[in-house]
């Protein structure tokens, strides 16, 4: 466990040692700020709804951008070999990296709490929906991060990793939107497998264990796939 945490700290360090983390965070704030501001000032509506509706779309690009380097870059530069010849198990490496991405996501998302506080001071904040929204974002973010890390473990090219990650996350996002095109027997399953469906449930302010379980299962499933992809070592 200590090794996992050491790895997480190094990952976080490397995000913030390079300009990438600051650029990514600023862009995130810029987007969310724009949508928050337009709802508040143009529509005179004191609600975080449009913010919560928007963030999953930002995650589509944002998360693959953070995760694309996790394994691809280590594979390309050869540092993966050093990492995996240290006395750690593959899963510790995966969890260490995942934890770093999740913490970075939480840091980014927590910057939007200022919008929630603004709303609370001038209007009526729907506390249940807000908490549900934040829980949803963290769970959705963790699952997408795990998928992004899996995409990164498949290649040594960061661009390929980004596109793969984006494609898989987008496909999972779309699953519950294509139910009209499939037989009704499959529709329920597809809907349940989609990431957005569960996020919508959480946004209603009801934290249902089924939704929480879904995201946790997806996160773990992607980690298992990652560890499988890592067991096929290059060269």
């Amino acid at each position: 466990m200590r090794e996992t945490w050491t790895l997480t700290k190094r990952e976080l360090h490397s995000y913030f040692d390079s300009p990438a983390a600051y650029v990514v965070m600023s862009v995130f704030l810029l987007f969310t700020g724009w949508f928050f501001g337009t709802t508040l000032f143009l529509e005179n509506s004191a609600s975080l709804r449009s913010l919560f509706d928007l963030v999953p779309f930002i995650f589509l690009f944002f998360i693959p951008a953070i995760t694309m380097g996790t394994f691809a870059e280590e594979r390309r530069s050869g540092t993966l070999e050093l990492l995996l010849t240290m006395p750690v198990k593959d899963w510790q490496v995966i969890v260490g990296k995942l934890l770093a991405v999740i913490l970075f996501l939480m840091a980014s998302v927590s910057l939007t709490v200022i919008y929630a506080l603004t709303i609370a001071s001038i209007g009526d904040l729907d506390a249940g929906a807000t908490i549900g929204g934040y829980v949803g974002l963290i769970l959705l973010g963790s699952a997408c991060a795990s998928v992004g890390i899996f995409a990164s473990s498949l290649t040594r090219n960061q661009i390929v990793s980004f596109i793969l990650g984006f494609a898989i996350i987008f496909a999972l996002f779309l699953l519950d939107k294509v139910t009209a095109f499939v037989p009704s027997s499959l529709a329920g399953i597809l809907q349940y497998m989609g990431t957005d469906f569960h996020y919508r449930n959480l946004l209603r302010g009801v934290i249902d264990s089924r939704d929480v379980l879904y995201y946790i299962s997806l996160t773990i499933f992607a980690c298992v796939l990652t560890s499988y992809s890592m067991s096929r070592r290059p060269e």
Partner: peptide, 13 residues
């Protein structure tokens, strides 16, 4: 203790 070929290191550290 292992030193792989081409000495891969974390460049930014």
């Amino acid at each position: 203790g292992y030193l792989p070929e081409n000495t891969p290191l974390y460049q930014e550290m």
